[in-house]
Amino acid sequence: MNHAITTLPLLERRTLAEAAYAHLRELLVSGRVAPGERLSLRDLSEALGVSVMPVREAVSRLIADHALEVAPNRAVRVPVMTRRQVRELARARAGIEGWAAALAAEARSPAQLERIAAAEEAMRLAQPNPDLGGAVALNRDFHFAIYEAAGLPPLLEVISGLWLKAGPVINLDLRHSNDRLAAGHALRCHAAALRAIRDGRPDAARQAIAEDIASATDFILEKGGLPEASGE
């Protein structure tokens, strides 16, 4: 059984399908499963401590979200994105998440600014030898502290959906290597975004987050391993 799956918490007997859906979303957003990786309904149900039925319902929702897919052999797997799809998703993220950062620079409260600053500091202090799984979580915490400060719940839902699709790809290299973190692009962009939000400069906040997304995408694509188009 995949180690990431075995670390999923046992669920209480509540709305089991909803809880399973939430936990599987987290598995994908955090990049703890890789593109092309197969997910066994039985393994997932055992890891979560529930029957197969609520897991099947949760997986069906994630297939509808285009976060999982059914392979030709009927196995459920994480979709494999092409290089073109990764580029397109990055462009969408840069525009939408950049806008959210600009809104945060205008609308953030003092308490929200403190959360953003604390998230930026936590990731910075985790260098130079971070736990890679922890680094993924810290990066997500920083970004979503900003997006929550934008003050638009529907926008936050859209961004969450983008991360659901992007998570397995954008965190793929972090599962195996510290190279991207060591390059320092993320820390520089995070620091710039924090300064811009603190100073109330929406255009600078937008640019910092867009640059963060673009630099991460460029790094991943330079590493190779993704097909240029479907079927390659």
Rank of each mutant, 00 (worst) to 15 (best):
L226C: 07
E120N: 09
A182N: 14
E222K: 15
P9H: 06
E232W: 06
A210T: 01
A111S: 14
A183S: 15
A196L: 09
I159V: 08
G225I: 08
P72C: 00
E88K: 02
L221I: 12
L48D: 02
P168I: 04
A214N: 11
V52Q: 07
R115T: 06
R42H: 13
H185Q: 14
A214G: 05
F219I: 02
R180P: 06
F142T: 02
A205V: 08
R84D: 13
L62F: 04
E121N: 13
H143F: 03
A47Y: 04
H3A: 15
L162N: 01
A166Y: 08
D203T: 13
D179V: 11
Y21C: 03
E114Y: 05
E97G: 04
G225R: 05
A90F: 07
A137P: 00
L62H: 08
E211G: 12
S51G: 15
V70Q: 11
E148S: 10
P202H: 11
H66D: 15
R87H: 13
L194P: 02
E88R: 09
A183V: 12
K223G: 15
R25V: 07
P54D: 03
E148Y: 06
P54A: 02
L68V: 01
I5A: 02
G36N: 05
H66C: 12
A186S: 14
P110V: 04
L164M: 01
V70K: 09
E46G: 09
L28K: 10
S109A: 10
V33G: 08
G184C: 10
F144C: 00
Q207N: 12
I159P: 00
V136K: 12
P128C: 00
D131K: 01
A17K: 08
A102D: 06
A67R: 02
A193Y: 04
D131M: 01
R42F: 12
S160Y: 11
T6I: 09
N171I: 09
A214K: 09
A34S: 14
T217A: 10
N171T: 13
V86P: 02
A122C: 11
V78E: 02
M81V: 12
A92D: 13
E120A: 15
Y21D: 07
A101I: 05
R84A: 14
A90T: 10
E88H: 01
L164I: 06
L48C: 04
L103K: 02
L113R: 08
L68Q: 03
L39D: 03
A191Q: 09
R195P: 06
E37R: 03
A94S: 11
R175E: 10
L174K: 09
H185R: 14
A67G: 07
E69L: 11
L181P: 03
I209C: 06
L113N: 02
P153G: 03
S109V: 10
R180H: 15
P110H: 11
L162G: 07
R87P: 04
A216P: 07
L68H: 06
A34L: 14
V136G: 06
S51A: 15
N129T: 14
A22C: 05
R124D: 05
H66L: 13
R77V: 01
L152H: 15
R201I: 11
D43E: 15
D173Q: 15
V59D: 01
S40P: 06
V78P: 10
A101P: 09
V50Q: 00
W163P: 06
I63Y: 08
